[in-house]
Amino acid sequence: MSAVGMKSTHSEVAKLDFRKGRGIPDMETLSPDTADMYLSLGLREQGKKILGYPRVLMLLSSALDRSVQKNERLLETSQSKDVITIFHGVRPPALTIRQYIERIFKYSACSPSCFVIAQIYMDRFVQNTDVLLTSLNVHRLLITSLTVAAKFVDDAFFNNAYYAKVGGVSTSELNRLEMKFLFSIDFRLHVSIDTFQRYCLLLEKEVSEGLQIERSIQSCRITESWSNKEDSTWYSHSC
Rank of each mutant, 00 (worst) to 15 (best):
L177K: 12
D186Y: 12
S216K: 13
L189E: 00
E224I: 05
S219Q: 06
I185E: 02
D186V: 10
E204Q: 10
D194K: 15
S184Y: 07
N159G: 15
K205A: 04
L203E: 00
R221E: 03
W226E: 01
I222P: 03
E173D: 04
R198W: 06
W234L: 10
E178W: 05
V166K: 11
S184D: 08
E206K: 07
V191S: 03
C200W: 01
Y199L: 06
F157Y: 14
E224D: 07
V207L: 11
C220L: 08
A164H: 11
K229W: 07
S170R: 11
Y199I: 05
Q197Y: 07
R221P: 00
R198V: 01
F181I: 12
R176L: 13
D186C: 11
I222Q: 03
W226D: 01
S227R: 10
D186H: 15
E204I: 06
F183G: 03
L182P: 05
E206Q: 14
S227W: 07
F183Q: 09
M179F: 13
D186P: 04
S232W: 08
S192F: 10
T233K: 15
S225M: 06
L203R: 09
Q212C: 00
C200Q: 09
S232G: 15
S219L: 06
E209I: 04
L177F: 13
F158K: 14
F181G: 07
K205F: 03
K165S: 14
D186G: 06
S208P: 02
R215F: 01
I213K: 08
S219M: 08
T195L: 11
N159S: 12
G168E: 05
S208V: 04
N160V: 14
T223D: 05
F187V: 02
K229Q: 14
W234K: 08
S208N: 02
R176C: 06
L174K: 11
R198Q: 07
E173P: 09
K229C: 11
V166H: 10
D194F: 08
R221C: 01
L182K: 13
Q212V: 12
D194V: 08
S227Q: 06
Q212H: 02
I213S: 02
T195Q: 14
D186R: 15
N160L: 15
N175Y: 04
R198L: 10
Y235I: 04
N175E: 03
W234H: 08
S192H: 04
S172I: 11
I222C: 06
K165V: 05
T223G: 03
E230T: 14
S225W: 06
L177S: 01
V166M: 12
R188H: 11
Y199D: 02
K205G: 01
G210T: 01
V207E: 05
S232I: 13
E230M: 14
F183W: 07
E173A: 07
K229H: 07
C200T: 05
F157I: 07
G168C: 13
E224H: 12
R215P: 04
I222R: 11
V166F: 10
Q212I: 13
K205R: 13
F187L: 05
R188M: 06
V169M: 09
L174R: 09
I213M: 08
G210E: 00
R215W: 01
C220W: 15
S172T: 08
L189K: 06
E206H: 05
G167I: 11
S170G: 14
